[in-house]
Design a binder for these strands. Structure first.
Lengths: 345, 345
DNA sequence: TCTTATTTCCGAAAAAGTTTCTGATATTTG
DNA sequence: CAAATATCAGAAACTTTTTCGGAAATAAGA
């Protein structure tokens, strides 16, 4: 192949496939009345020449759409991330396509599958934002090969330094939450976090441990549980903690959803919030201030994370180096009504 | 409107505007070097002729993407609708693009604007699903002219019979909720609903009134408030009701979000749920069973509504007549722990 | 088996749209 | 105030899609 940098035209594809450009056009647009054989020859020629159609917005301007893949859409967190992404996308005049992983369906053609990645590339997508989902090294490599940029938000699995991720200062958040409880006078503080492979959860735990250590409080391994970020996990962890010989006077939950689970477990146990038990959440989703009582929680700027992820993705797609491989946005403690001083013994 | 008018071409637009088609093309693609005056003339001509660009794939075979427009993404309801849509889209092998209305930004190029609609048509979208947002007759007409199908979910404004809408059996839901409270022995039951222009809210109110009437209970106008479906609206309506001379023993809230507001107002008032006050919500979003106590609510099959909306949209786009212009999915009462018999007087 | 329709298939030419380039004005700048 | 630069519109060139006519294949009758 000569160093012809010119973009191949449909005519060249047609010539290579031995058909007219009218027929090549039909193949490209999935029209009827093209024999299977002809179709295959044209497809082959398209692949060989690396032909990309030039209809509509051209050049770099054609990278005007991104895909977002969610682990699940079934929670407020996802909605808020998406809200941030869509807002930023509107400002940058790019379109947002949404996919959700379906654990039921296999990976046949679904999000993050090989054929899905190829399709994105041929459709001129700028890249993919992966939200709270797992991204394997293989998937990462396929995307790179296809020329797709990737940004990950709160990844479920640890990733090499090549992939850009956006998160928040989880360590600081864990520190803030735990210090708040210590300042109120609590000493038996539990951590009810996500599964231990989750990097954000681990970092929050480290912050928790660090705060305890700073305050000269010995950490009790019996008060650290890591079953998940879900409502159900929170409820179950709280039930376990209430059954301890000396139950905690405060629980730091790894997410708002699990904090809600703690609240429900407390209600079942007949504990009043915050008098009998202080609870701190994490995220500050919309559900944090719609609980009774409103939840003290560590605020992650979730919508900002979406915005930053989109902007970073577009930067990458334009070939600019991102400012950093791991972008952390600041967390902030929001004190509401689910925490107070422990009862005097 | 003439049915088989030839579609106007760019040349005709150019002629009407008194420019060359090259210049008209520039306007269409937002390119530089077009004077404001010329741009306006061309835009005017485009509007007058109802021109829609025809570049790119545009036949039925390629209608493999739909746009979804949300009033806001900032709640669980939107997330669940989207979840249903994305699931069905995956099954049908179509892609989903998400937009959110931004009240801050004007309508310059934003979702539902004229240029937005044109762009969708150019990009071969099958149509648009509008979720809990307002759709004007003008927007509807532009979409029809551009050959885009439309399906509306829980519309904010009343619509003519031409546009297909998907909702749930709101009247029956109102009936179910109110009967449940009546069966428990309540007689002073309040309705804390959405604003009265909202068709779903009105229908729920009618169900409420009908149930009361069936039971021979006189409706007290002082117990009917219609301030909105939001958390805040729910909290404020509840506060108002608690201040009544004879406060209600049960509140039927128009949505789960407003039911959460009622819960919070009750907590502030020192009322225990369900002993001092029974609360019924509407929607059965994820937030309904993550409250303390879990909420008795009228289940709308929200994800199914998304699924049905997508399928109906694709049917329409294929030129098939939809089964019905207004599709209502069945509601179902889900009894949890926020309702019980009223205290004996 | 031999017409006669019908459907499939392909390409030449026409149609539709975008980009380049050229020339004419305006607007800035040293 | 001349030179450089930016803006603007249209003719021509170019890319892609669609139409349409005819060839080949397939189905249907008699």
């Amino acid at each position: 192949m000569d160093a012809d940098m010119e973009r191949p035209t449909l005519d060249e594809v047609a010539r290579l496939a031995g058909v007219s450009k009218a027929t090549a056009s039909k193949v490209l647009n999935h029209r009827r009345y093209v024999s299977e054989d002809t179709r295959r020859r044209v497809e082959e020629a398209i692949g060989r020449l690396g032909y990309v159609p030039t209809t509509g917005p051209r050049d770099a301007a054609s990278l005007r759409a991104v895909n977002v893949v969610f682990d699940t859409l079934a929670n407020v967190y996802s909605a808020q991330v998406l809200s941030g992404i869509v807002g930023a996308a509107r400002a940058q005049d790019v379109e947002v396509l949404v996919d959700a992983l379906d654990p039921a369906a296999g990976d046949a053609g679904g999000p993050l599958s090989a054929s899905w990645i190829r399709r994105l590339a041929t459709h001129g997508r700028a890249g993919v934002i992966v939200v709270t989902a797992e991204l394997t090294a293989g998937q990462r490599a396929q995307m790179r090969a296809a020329g797709l940029s990737v940004v990950v938000i709160d990844p479920l699995n640890p990733l090499d330094d090549e992939v850009v991720s956006v998160g928040s200062t989880n360590f600081a958040g864990g520190l803030q939450a735990t210090r708040h409880l210590l300042d109120l006078g609590h000493r038996r503080i539990a951590y009810a976090g996500g599964v231990s492979v989750s990097a954000p959860s681990r970092e929050r735990l480290q912050g928790y441990l660090s705060a305890l250590s700073d305050a000269g409080v010995a950490a009790d391994p019996g008060l650290v549980l890591e079953q998940g970020f879900s409502f159900r996990a929170g409820r179950e962890m709280a039930a376990t903690l209430f059954a301890r010989e000396r139950p905690p006077t405060a629980i730091f939950a790894g997410s708002d959803a699990s904090a809600l689970g703690v609240l429900e477990a407390a209600r079942r146990q007949g504990l009043r919030i915050p008098d009998d038990l202080s609870v701190v959440g994490f995220d500050d989703t919309y559900s944090a201030f719609t609980t009774a009582p409103p939840l003290t929680t560590v605020r992650q700027p979730i919508e900002d994370m979406g915005r930053v992820a989109l902007r970073t993705l577009l930067q990458q797609a334009r070939g600019e180096r991102p400012d950093s491989h791991h972008i952390q946005l600041a967390t902030q403690l929001v004190v509401r009504e689910s925490t107070t001083a422990p009862r005097p013994e």
